[in-house]
Nucleic acid binder design. Sequence first.
DNA 1: AGAGTAACCAAGCAAGCGCTAGTGTAAATG
DNA 2: CATTTACACTAGCGCTTGCTTGGTTACTCT
Lengths: 192, 192
Amino acid sequence: MNVMNASPRRKELTRLAAQLFVQEGFDRTTVRMLAQEMGIKSGSLFHHFKDKQEILAAVIEEGTQNALLIARKALNECATEPEIRLRTMARAHLETLFTDRNAHVVALFEWRRLDPVASAHLSHLRDAYEALWVSVIDEALDSGLIHGDRFLVSRFVLGALNWTVRWYDPNGSRSPDDLADELVAMIMPTAD
Amino acid sequence: MNVMNASPRRKELTRLAAQLFVQEGFDRTTVRMLAQEMGIKSGSLFHHFKDKQEILAAVIEEGTQNALLIARKALNECATEPEIRLRTMARAHLETLFTDRNAHVVALFEWRRLDPVASAHLSHLRDAYEALWVSVIDEALDSGLIHGDRFLVSRFVLGALNWTVRWYDPNGSRSPDDLADELVAMIMPTAD
DNA sequence: AGAGTAACCAAGCAAGCGCTAGTGTAAATG
DNA sequence: CATTTACACTAGCGCTTGCTTGGTTACTCT
């Protein structure tokens, strides 16, 4: 097997695995289902990954890293007004959840399935992403745009955003950006 | 086996099952684990439930019904001001999530594991609970307490509340009621 | 041409899974 | 007293699971 490499084939397989994990959940996804989706036999899977666990870890790492990258890029490119930065973060978050990036969904909803070692190894990524949120929330708090406890606010906002996966219909009338704007408007006293 | 009855023994077993489902997730919880926790052998389980599925259905039914009951009772006993009613709903929701009522957590996080028949049979309970939320949100909107789309607001609020199970520490410094109040304050322009 | 390597397959093992069949037993019921 | 009912047990069946083994193919690089 390839020792923790990042071959293009493995990248592709990780993407397919993410899709299945979102559809069925990690536990219900068998190695045979994964293999079939990838067009290979189940045994061949273990040439690319040593474990089913390692597949999950790969998906989650990709998902979190991607979310982090997109958020950082979006923040770098946007204005400095706290309100705009808040909106930007919310939009970026929903973008990673809905636009063909199942990996972030897996990262959020299947994190508990990681074994302790992998979880410890990946937690710094998640922490970095959360820190980004807290900093944006802090700016909004300092400027008086919103009010409340910094940790509580960021967790409530993230919770509201993450839960959209459960009910949002991409074919509906509302766009992800729309959702993000509505959420930000909801927690801002001045908007309407 | 008992045909869909509600014997006290079955109630007790359902409570224990809920606890395990929260700890391990439905898929990872084996009938042998359930049996051991209940102090019986795995075969004896199927005297009370015809299926592993039926155990899940029983837990979810109990959880949703309980949440509905508690919310209705709380609303009946509280004042008519929209702000107070909102706070009451949020508190009731967190109460069912944290105070030894694992069933509601299972109802929220393992709903997808229900087979279509059971899901259809129980969905009216969930709808009734959601309707309760929408009505309270509507009152708050009509009175100008908050602003936004009724469905979006209720779903954002529920999302924020449900996600608390992922990070809330019951042994921490904040009480569930505390959380509820902070969330309501966050979405209200006038509060501080 | 020969060596090395990445990707795959066929076959199957050991363990664990949900669930069943048949039996025992003590308490409730006629 | 005879019968039913509720609850538990033992034993194991049939199947699926994650994963291994040993070997084959196709491609690249010297």
